[in-house]
Nucleic acid binder design. Structure first.
Lengths: 204, 204
DNA sequence: GTCTATAACTCGATAGAC
DNA sequence: GTCTATCGAGTTATAGAC
């Protein structure tokens, strides 16, 4: 009974607790008892509402993956010019992650643990299709507006620079003595910093 | 009894097996039985040599973290000019990871799970000190040789672009139908690609 | 050093009262 | 719907023979 609010339904309390526990410990590391304690109820109720641990986990994983991915899609497929698309992407994507900074590591982990589960459940429901962005990059190269670069490398570069720092936070904190508010400020800076970096790297 | 060689000592067989199992499943997901099977011996021997699961895990984690980190140190502290240092770093670092592509996710995970353990055990034994590289970047900015950039962002950018694609491999594979040898070739390309990208982003 | 057998314990799941 | 009590499978760890 750590943070459950009286006016939440049991189901909402369970979901909030499961979110917290699964995201920080993963499927194998999480205990149903931990989730019950966090929700301020008992284990039996977890099974009453969600039948078993795997089913509860799947709800949390899918909502997390959907929080992380579909908005990217929207930006990738928009009709913005390339440089504006890059600026929009870095700003929006880092904003999304700042709201749930532990989600990326959780999602990446579970996708590595079971890539097929991920494929089956996610791909149909809005997993980003970068094809339009990749084609747009090709186009700009052909027109001679930007330097030659394999579009896939460009995409990997942008995504890596947005996501990875959140996974490496403990190393930054420990090694360079950066506290939580300093870290948040660094990530706020990165919204523009990464876009500028990418654009400087490809513009002629 | 999957791949154990007759001429390895039991201890070596156990370490090789533990490496494989812990790195792919993490501490919580790994079973002592899995490790025993992989080593071709029985569970009791694991305890005979390493006393318990946590102690065996710690050996694997520390050797993995040391494989991932200390060579960077060497490059960071070298006397190379900045652009050569960037080229050396991306090439060497991606080479290291190509030899053990699952190590980065494993290490990042376990550091997030228990940051203090990591700090106690690793920092004293050669965890990278980027201070010299950061100072060198400051210096080049002051001399007017490169564009203004917060050195820490530059460092995060380089490391992110080298490491993150390995963690995201299953997504690349599933979404863009990239097989193992294509992936390896992409990462080989990145050795020069990332260096070029970084240098283009900061050179005047 | 290496094995078999089993003790001790953890944890997901269920039965059944209220 | 929610709880207490408990079962039973799976796991780590140890005892003891060889």
């Amino acid at each position: 009974m750590v943070k459950a609010k009286k006016d939440e339904s049991a189901e909402e309390k369970i979901l909030a607790a499961a979110r917290k526990v699964f995201i920080s410990k993963g499927l194998a590391g999480a205990r149903m008892q931990d989730i019950a304690d966090e929700a301020g109820i008992n284990k039996a109720l977890l099974h009453y509402y969600f039948r078993n641990k795997e089913k509860l986990f799947e709800v949390i994983f899918l909502e997390s993956a959907q929080k992380l991915f579909p908005k990217i899609n929207f930006i990738f497929d928009s009709d913005l010019p390339l440089f504006e698309k890059i600026e929009t992407f870095t700003a929006e994507y880092i904003s999304i992650i700042l709201e749930s900074p532990y989600v990326p590591l959780f999602v990446v982990n579970e996708i590595n643990r079971d890539p097929d589960m991920f494929f089956d459940k996610m791909v149909k429901s809005g997993f980003p299709k970068p094809h339009k962005l990749l084609a747009q990059v090709e186009e700009e190269i052909k027109k001679g507006n930007i330097k030659r670069i394999h579009p896939l490398h460009l995409l990997m570069n942008m995504i890596s620079m947005c996501i990875f720092p959140f996974m490496a936070k403990p190393m930054l904190s420990k090694r360079l003595h950066i506290n939580d508010s300093q870290f948040r400020q660094l990530m706020e800076e990165r919204k523009k910093e990464v876009a500028r970096f990418v654009i400087d790297a490809i513009k002629k």
